[in-house]
Design a protein around this nucleic acid. Structure first.
Length: 449
DNA sequence: TCTCTGCTCAC
DNA sequence: CAAGTGAGCAGAGAC
């Protein structure tokens, strides 16, 4: 099979190859830049990125099998429902219009139907009609609920259900995505043609698409293995915050443990709301979120949000210190780095424009966390592949989704694979907090979660 | 045909 | 001002 990306070469061949092929020279340069000959990048480049080239090559060549009949049936189901919704929406609007046009939709909602007196506009002056805005008006007019459902089903059909069967290779019937190694700013992989890193999982209807991702034959099963809370564990390790490290070492549910600390209660008495607020703060921390952002996310007042954040940093004070330190480092050195010394340069950290500077500061906080997670799973992938080949297994690694690896496992090898993958992933790096994985094996990707 | 915009899917 | 990293779709308008 001919790959679309130039990874069908061994690390040993890569330098010669680079001279001949403009594309891979360009890609390599991006990995190498700006200072590959300096010692700090040797380990990352020669022991992680270069060996990963052949791991990705195999993943891409193996591909993943798809139940196309199931997707075709689902597509017809979606069509029928979309047709009904289309009629109902136009009837409620009192005139035909293109529901897929945010411009036309905004004019119908905010001018003709006047569902709100304080309509928000986008930067180009159109009415904003995004999901979070429509949800706020869901009870103001029956058309809103219909539009939200229409948008969801349209997305599923046009992005996943219809394109996936057409992307099956005619020879082996599998989907062969590209996993790009040199695209992102943080060191993550990206996936395209098709993107297999954003297959739906959150909504009930969307999840059904995962059911169509299946093992290659009846002798195989899909095994999904994901790192548990890897980014929060990395913050704990990078910041050396004693409270968060202790929380992870105790093995408790981290969001519940955070809620117990923030709301001064025992872990058994944490309410659902408290846990969900703590979870939102934990995620917000990773992104450099403000009180304003948290307030919007949780639909609470800014004062309440600030109270929660203050209580959070009272418990996890070292995390606050760490965040200040990493921004100061970005100002001083012009870059931040991951646990494997991967750098992200942030020239905007010196911008006179506060908005631009704010972006760079959030990048400074996020890049070491997201990038270190990428470092860890890349090390694990190389280790897993090495162990699988040493044991001469016929199981295959077939997907990477940032904190998750998916394997097509021969049924006779399930137990060996479970042990091998757990060992490789949990021991990819040694940090102050344990790296834990969760794994499940089933006859499709949905049930392997 | 190409590019931009707005939106929505994932981690 | 205000949550990080991506990919892909349809509409809209420039060419």
């Amino acid at each position: 099979m001919i790959r679309k990306t130039p990874f069908h070469i061994t690390p040993e061949q890569i330098k010669d190859y680079a001279c001949e092929d403009a594309d891979i020279t360009f890609q390599l340069k991006k990995i190498l830049e700006p200072e590959i000959e300096k010692p700090h990048l040797h380990h990352l480049f020669y022991d992680v990125e270069m060996p990963l080239v052949s791991v990705l090559k195999e993943i891409e060549q193996e591909g993943i099998a798809i139940d196309t009949a199931a997707l075709t049936a689902f597509s017809k189901e979606l069509d029928a429902r979309l047709l009904t919704l289309d009629d109902e929406i136009k009837a409620l609007a009192g005139e035909p219009f293109n529901i897929d046009s945010p411009k036309q939709l905004g004019e119908i909602l905010f001018e003709k139907l006047q569902i709100s007196s304080k309509a928000k506009k986008t930067k180009t002056g159109q009415y904003a009609t995004s999901e979070d805005i429509l949800q706020k008006h869901e009870h103001d007019h029956p058309i809103i609920g219909h539009i939200l459902e229409y948008r969801q089903l349209r997305k599923l059909k046009s992005t996943y259900v219809d394109p996936l069967p057409t992307l099956c290779d005619p020879i082996d019937g599998r989907i062969h995505s590209n996993f790009m190694q040199t695209v992102t700013a943080t060191g993550r992989l990206s996936s395209n043609n098709p993107n297999l890193q954003n297959i739906p999982v959150r909504s009930a209807k969307g999840r059904e698409i995962r059911r169509a991702f299946v093992p290659r034959s009846s002798d195989f099963q899909l095994m999904a293995v994901d790192y548990s809370q890897i980014e929060l564990r990395i913050i704990a390790a990078l910041s050396q915050d004693p409270n968060m490290i202790a929380a992870f070492k105790s093995g408790h549910d981290i969001h519940a443990a955070t809620a117990a600390k923030v709301f001064h209660t025992s872990i058994d008495e944490v309410t659902r709301e408290q846990r969900s607020a703590a979870k939102a703060v934990n995620f917000g921390i990773i992104y450099g979120q403000s009180a304003f952002g948290l307030a919007q996310n949780l639909q609470i007042s800014r004062t309440e949000a600030k109270g929660i954040i203050d209580a959070y940093f009272e418990q996890y004070g070292t995390i606050k210190t760490y965040m200040e330190k990493v921004i100061a480092q970005a100002r001083e050195l012009g870059y931040v780095e991951t646990i494997l010394k991967r750098r992200r340069y942030l020239p905007d950290i010196h911008s006179a424009n506060a908005v631009v500077r704010g972006f760079a500061e959030r990048n400074a906080i996020n890049a070491p966390i997201q990038g270190s997670a990428a470092d860890i799973i890349k090390v694990a992938m190389v280790a897993v592949q090495k162990a699988m080949s040493k044991e001469k297994l016929q199981s295959k690694m077939i997907l990477q989704v940032h904190d998750e690896l998916v394997f097509d496992v021969h049924v006779s090898e399930i137990e060996r694979m479970q042990a091998l993958v757990r060992t490789a992933m949990e021991n990819a790096v040694s940090l102050e907090v344990p790296m834990e994985v969760e794994m499940k094996t089933a006859s499709n990707w949905l049930e392997a979660h």
